[in-house]
């Protein structure tokens, strides 16, 4: 919403990582507007359920279209929007619970289709809005409200998952650096195919990882995040795999495959094989 709406009473906690992601998305959409001349209404932000999904209501300035749907289904909703109108720029915003748990079944199909959208996942390793239950990226053994004796599952490795499923653009970002993140989101939007921008976006209330991510250089604690060196070849899948096996969290473009057509391009390809007929022609074919 463009200005304060007294009816909308949702607030992120002060210091929430999602503020930085919002800023980055705004930067990316404005950059796109300036570069393409297409109005902001040419963007559609499809949001998941949870703290992160509220981003769609909290965007400032001129407004894109939004779809705040149901839990876990942001990807197939975005597929419908994109395939209905391939000229639109479609961005998904969701959290690790929505995207990787209840919505996990939708990642592989979009990767196989190479659906031309950009999904920004805000990973805070916890269900924040429901007050602190464990999520797929919560670490093994961590005590949360829903794991009183420690989490019993191993944590998911989203970057490795995306790479394995065949996502054609994978970037890793940090909400603490919105400018850098904006660049990754914009590169994801420009990529012709399914792009994932996985963002570390800490929850200051239930899982505050800022210190871990940024480290404490004065006390000799190394930051978890590190920038991907410029000599990394993102189109090399083996190099991408090696990169994410390293300690900590690489930030930047991990993998990029520009050789595959996206779903909307593949649909156009089949038009040459199929004969388009009017309703009248189709009816006539049944006459005897």
């Amino acid at each position: 919403m463009s200005k304060k709406n007294p009816e909308y009473d949702f607030k992120w906690c002060p210091g929430c990582g999602d503020f930085g992601v919002r800023r980055a998305l705004e930067f990316a959409m404005i950059d796109r507007l300036e570069e393409t001349g297409l109005p902001i209404e040419n963007n559609v932000v499809v949001a998941g359920i949870g703290c992160s999904g509220n981003l769609v209501h909290l965007l400032e300035g001129s407004q894109p279209y939004g779809f705040h749907g149901i839990h876990g289904r942001s990807l197939p909703i975005s597929m419908g929007v994109k395939m209905g109108r391939p000229d639109l720029n479609v961005v998904v915003v969701a959290g690790d619970g929505d995207f990787l748990s209840i919505g996990g079944e939708h990642i592989a199909p979009q990767a196989a289709r190479n659906l031309n959208i950009c999904a920004v996942v805000m990973d805070n390793g916890v269900y924040g809005l429901t007050k602190g239950q464990s999520s797929p990226t919560t670490k093994l053994g961590v005590v949360t409200s829903s794991t009183p004796f420690g989490k019993m599952e191993n944590e998911a490795d989203p970057l490795e998952l995306y790479l394995t499923l065949g996502v054609s653009f994978i970037a890793s970002g940090f909400s603490g650096n919105p400018r850098q993140l904006a660049g990754l989101i914009k590169e994801g939007m420009n990529h012709q195919g399914f792009s994932m921008v996985h963002v570390q976006s800490p929850c200051v209330t239930y899982n505050d990882t800022y210190e871990l991510l940024k480290g404490k250089p004065k006390e000799g604690i190394e930051p978890l995040v590190w920038d991907i060196p410029e000599d990394h070849e993102p189109n090399d899948k083996a190099a991408a795999y090696n990169l994410i096996q390293k300690r900590g969290l690489p930030i930047g473009v991990i993998y990029k495959d520009e050789s595959r057509p996206s779903l909307d391009q593949r649909i156009e390809d089949i038009w040459s094989k199929a004969k388009e007929q009017t309703a009248q022609q189709l009816i006539d074919a049944y006459e005897f």
Binding site: F67, R73, P76, I77, G80, G84, H106, P109
Partner: peptide, 29 residues
């Protein structure tokens, strides 16, 4: 038969994808 510019017919991975995909298409006009 539903082929050609401006038309879309597609098999998805579940009925949950069907209905949520339709929601996106209907929203997009």
């Amino acid at each position: 038969n539903l082929v050609g510019p401006g038309k879309f017919a597609y098999q998805v991975s579940s009925e949950i994808e069907s209905i949520t995909g339709l929601l996106g298409g209907g929203f997009a006009g």
